[in-house]
Design a protein around this nucleic acid. Structure first.
Lengths: 137, 137
DNA sequence: GCTTGCCCTAGAGTTCACTTTATAGTTTAT
DNA sequence: ATAAACTATAAAGTGAACTCTAGGGCAAGC
């Protein structure tokens, strides 16, 4: 598979794919060269890019990803180290989810206030008072 | 309150605070100048910075934040526009939470595999097979 | 009155994750 | 055979959100 085909399949640009390779996120399990020096991608490249996207979408940096993916490949780190990383990442995600829940709370309050403001400005004003009395801006 | 004190209270650097001001996230409700031109921050500055952190932690850009905070202050946008923004943001957060759930799934699989690898390499190998048969890397 | 430490501005530098550009070789269609 | 469409490399540019530096002013202690 040539680079443009892969790019289309993955919804990336060819530049991005070459960039990932340069950053060490793809190795010869994913890309090889044809006699004309064109890159030729294996099916594994697709899976790798999917994995990159997945991790990236939850806030892994490419540097962090490189670490994990290299662990995945070679045995640079011990199993225990990887298990630790996974546990840490799980905690991170869980606390991020909690933050999101808090934020949803805040947004719901804002929504309630703004809706009230349209229907009953008087009551909205009252709401603002009690809000300010408790905590945030 | 002088800048260093605020920075310490908020866990930011003085550079970051001045940067936020330059970006228009703080106004004269939050900062004024003393006769010597030193910045003097009100208590409201603390609430404002908390709010900035809160929104930022769930992926709002400073530009976006500026919009909302200005709405919050002046009535640059209509109530309906703000309500729309809030609704959109809520959706964003909800789908982000789903992504996080998926990621937790993946991490749990990885953890299971790595744990098995330590206790029963044979079974770990089998697990890898069924995994590869289904989908991801 | 001098040192130390905090304050100011303006602007340059940094990191991340791309994105674009310049230049050139290869393949394919007409 | 030539144009178009694709590939390659190397390197510069971008935007976001800081972060740091240079060069200077004020303030408090000895």
């Amino acid at each position: 598979m040539k680079i443009q085909e892969l790019a289309d399949k993955m919804g990336l640009t060819i530049h991005t794919i070459r960039f990932y390779e340069k950053e060490g996120l793809l190795d010869d399990r994913h890309v090889r060269r044809e006699s004309n020096n064109y890159r030729n991608y294996s099916e594994e490249a697709i899976e790798r890019l999917k994995l990159i996207k997945k991790f990236q979408s939850i806030g892994c940096s490419l540097a962090e990803l490189k670490e994990v993916l290299q662990d995945h490949d070679s045995n640079a780190h011990t199993n225990l180290q990887i298990i630790d990383w996974i546990r840490g990442k799980k905690k991170e995600i869980e606390s991020k989810k909690e933050e999101y829940d808090q934020m949803l709370d805040t947004l719901n309050k804002m929504l309630k206030y703004r809706t009230l403001l349209m229907n009953d400005p008087q009551k909205a004003q009252e709401m603002l008072m009690t809000w300010h009395a408790s905590s945030s801006d």
